[in-house]
Amino acid sequence: MGLEMTYRDALQKAIVDEMERDENVLIMGEDIGRYQGTFKVTRGMVEKFGDRQNRYNLRILDTPITEAGFAGIATGAAMAGLRPIVEFMTMSFSILAMDQIINHTAKVHYMTNGEVKCPIVFRGPGGAAKQLSAQHSHSMEGWYAHCPGLKVVAPSTVADVYGILRTAVRDDNPVIVYENPGLYAMKGELPEDPDFTVPIGKAQILREGTDISLVGYSRMTHINLAAAELLEKDGISAEVVDVRSLLPLDTETIYASVRKTHRAVMVYEDWRSGGFGAEIAARISEDCFDHLDAPVVRVGGLNVPMPYARVLELQCIPDEHDVVAAVRKIS
């Protein structure tokens, strides 16, 4: 039996365990200290690693609201040997830091031809939370997974977010951790092994099936699991492939599933056009063409700036019924 905890608490446990293991690990971001974090991932940490009366705590550092600036400072600190974790209050705000992340962080190792390493983690909630509307609901993982030099992970379970975040902190390369806010309160089980980690770059099969592969990551993996339940009632056996890591992408595991089921639906919350799911769908089509009995279908978020009204917001985000409908289209 493992420890039962929420995705949010698993995140904090990974951060705390890594900070206790290595004093070069620190976390910085907006309102993460005294205010305990907007999504409360860092609740109680300022007392653990400092003193809320201090003007600043370098290990758990409240930053001004200047995303580009602190993303760059963390990158410089990583170049000099620290291992910063940068929390973005939402991944939508990381857009302000994209010049730093794309033009600087992601280029350090290559432009120095390997002379300088940049061990840094950027993490935060991406995708729709609840009625945060157009400026706070972006799925940014595809933007980052487009860029060589970054690693991008999107864990969907409690054990994975803990294990992958620990691996990300120890990674000598910049890693973007995409956390869907819809997962924070989800409960799950964490293995008791104190050294438990999960490698970056490995997909997993969360449900075995024979008729179709439902490929997704982060919260969409749970949508796929729900869809698989519905499909089972109709006599369709769906396999759920949890991608976990977008860059690197474990095509081996994805392709093995598709070669077995001969059909694939790619599910992602990001805008349907040009989202990273489209890239995965393209690769399946290109590399598994001979094994496919039907075209690979994309189920993505509507190509709409996220609207506020709950009814419209829910319309934009794929759910299990959208997945079932897509499966029917090719079955």
Binding site: G72, G76, H104, M111, T112
Partner: peptide, 20 residues
Amino acid sequence: FGGWGIVGGHIPLGAGLAFA
């Protein structure tokens, strides 16, 4: 530590070196 091409973009990196 470089050697950077985006005007002003390396200034936070420099502060990050000092941070370390």
